[in-house]
Amino acid sequence: MWLPILYFVAQKFKVYEDPRIDEVDEVLPGANCGGCGYPGCRGFAEACVKSEDLGNLYCPVGGNDCMSSVAKVLGRTAVEKEPDVAVLLCNGACSLRPNTNKYDGAGSCTIAHNLYGGETGCQYGCLGLGDCVRVCDFDALHMDTETGLPVVDEEKCTACGACVKECPRNLFELRPKGKKGRRIYVACSNKDKGSAKKIGCDVACIGCRKCEKECAFDAITIENFNAYIDPQKCKLCRKCAPVCPTNAIHEINFPPRKVKVEKEPALAETSSTTSVQSEGATEVVARKPRVKPESTDAPKPDPSSENNPS
């Protein structure tokens, strides 16, 4: 006897939902990471169905493949986008950035950031407490115990932007993956004056403008004593990296510079390949192998020998 009532109630309160939402939801990755800017995949599917064209909608996790399937379901055309990847704009590993004090509070970057400038002399750099690792839904971030910096696993990173949002010091940037995964960026976010930076960190961008002068494409701008390479303008010519006096410019996935015969980039042998290698990480920083007649390329100055006016 309850059945008719139940049936009636069910009919009465039935919510009409566009069946295409389900179909779109089906082809989405289902990670519910929010990287698209919508609350979960379902929200994104709804937005896709509602929108006239898919111009502003992009699922960074699924990428172009996923978007073209979405477009197929809806009978629209997807906009191709170059895939992004997260990069860390700090290279102040423990050994290059000596500790000046010992943090003993709760293990959260945001808490430490709200409290003070951090354990080292650089108040802009990575705090190394791993908030980014905790928010990563894709297991693409790991702390390197040696450098104390997080390492992005390029294969797993979906450019969802969770780490970009989480980092209290805004040290992550989503940059185009680049052809063959090759990209060049300045791994430093310090906004102090050059002299002050050198005290805190050996690999800080000191804003010397050498790279800016070297770049033929106007891709490099210096702001707040810090260089920035515009990925849209950068042609990956690799001219900027060798002139950097502090090794702040990172080249990723390039063959080593001193190429003679190697076919595969012989990573293990490039002794100047520093820091960012850890197990499972595919990101490899092919550091400018210093061709070392010490005179041309001045080695990093010892901060103590400098007369720092402060």
């Binding site: 959260s108 945001t110 808490i111 709200n114």
Partner: peptide
Amino acid sequence: RPLLDYIRLGKS
């Protein structure tokens, strides 16, 4: 437990 550390974070 670092109660206040996290409460401060929450407050901000």
